[in-house]
């Protein structure tokens, strides 16, 4: 039995603790959704919820991989190039035939793994700063896509492949289900496995991690390989959503993938964060885009709104986090 005077702060602390465990970003996701729904009732429609979930999946899968790169204290801006690569390669291999679907997917994933391996190698062996190494890789991938296509991309996806980006299963978009499956697998990998603990340890303090016997180079390289593979998977989902190749398709992920992860609460300097929070971060960024698309504002105002809301939300739940630390 607690007295009434004690119960309120206790409950409040419990709620805060719960929020903090889930990732404070979820408050922002819910608050933004309610506010945008009040401004534009269309946001409350089931169809629009499903639409946001469908569109979130592309960014969500890419950001899941980005989270791993950030967790080990790195950053992966080559995800933009990997998305473009997977779009160009998959459509040019599939060329609208069913029998080429699996080879199209496999080749993209294989290239992505090699890209991740080279990123990891540049960062751990050659000691190139992650930002510079992956920026260089991004440029190489875009250039390679230009050379490969001659600036004139051709091909289209296999008919059966469209289901991943456009289909629905048990009332939910297939792309969303793919995203959740990938994200939950990564939640398990980061939270329940030795490899996951190593990711956090390496990101928090690579020297200490090495001293306790963790293979730091191998762990970091594995994080970049996974990041690249997930960027390719995100690219494949987006390709399935639209069906055709486009050389500029990946550019949008260069910064939004990092924004989604950081808004989720993952630290830019490594060792802190979670995939679960990135799901929230992704939903937040997609909701925000959707909201600013719907409200009648100019593109300029749209950018200002997006920037201000991201900054405000990060500030707000940092305050919530600080409050909990004090209590």
């Amino acid at each position: 039995m607690t007295t009434g005077a004690e119960s309120l702060p206790t409950h409040f602390a419990r709620i805060l603790a719960l929020v903090n465990r889930m990732g404070a970003v979820w408050i922002a996701v819910i608050a933004l959704y309610v506010v945008s729904g009040l401004v534009s009732p269309g946001m409350f429609h089931v169809d629009q919820v499903l639409n946001i979930l469908q569109v979130s999946a592309f960014l969500g899968v890419v950001a899941t991989g980005q989270t791993l790169a950030l967790l080990v204290g790195g950053i992966d801006v080559s995800v933009a190039g990997v998305v473009t690569m997977s779009n160009i390669v998959s459509t040019s291999v599939m060329v609208g035939h069913s029998e080429t679907m699996l080879s199209g997917i496999a080749i993209c994933l294989l290239i992505a793994a090699v890209v991740g391996l080279i990123n990891g190698w540049m960062i751990t062996i050659l000691r190139v700063t992650p930002l510079v190494a992956t920026l260089a890789m991004n440029s190489i991938l875009f250039g390679a896509a230009l050379v490969y296509t001659g600036g004139a991309p051709h091909g289209t996806v296999s008919p059966g492949f469209l289901v991943f980006g456009q289909g629905h299963l048990i009332g939910l978009p297939v792309s969303t289900l793919c995203w959740l499956a990938i994200a939950l697998a990564m939640v398990w990998l980061t939270q329940k496995t030795v490899f996951g603990r190593r990711l956090y340890a390496v990101g928090a303090n690579p020297v200490a991690a090495r001293l306790v016997g963790i293979a730091v180079r191998r762990t970091v390289t594995a994080a970049y390989i996974l990041s690249s593979i997930m960027a390719a998977l995100g690219g494949l989902l987006l390709t399935s959503y639209i069906g055709s190749p486009s050389l500029g398709i990946g550019d949008q992920f260069l910064l939004t993938s990092i924004a989604a992860v950081v808004v989720g609460g993952t630290a830019l300097n490594g060792g802190v964060g979670s995939i679960f929070a990135t799901i929230g971060g992704t939903l937040f960024i997609t909701e925000l885009n959707s909201f600013t698309n719907i409200v009648s504002v100019s593109t300029g105002t749209q950018f200002v709104l997006q920037g201000a809301i991201i900054a405000l939300s990060v500030l707000l739940y940092r305050l919530i986090g600080a409050k909990r630390a004090v209590s």
Partner: peptide, 25 residues
């Protein structure tokens, strides 16, 4: 109902239009 930039990219235009359809049936 709305003027939006879609970058002359099919995927971006599809996403923007999907939002507009929700707001303006």
């Amino acid at each position: 109902l709305a003027f939006k930039d879609a970058s002359w990219e099919e995927d971006k235009a599809k996403v923007v239009m999907a939002d507009l359809i929700a707001a303006y049936p």
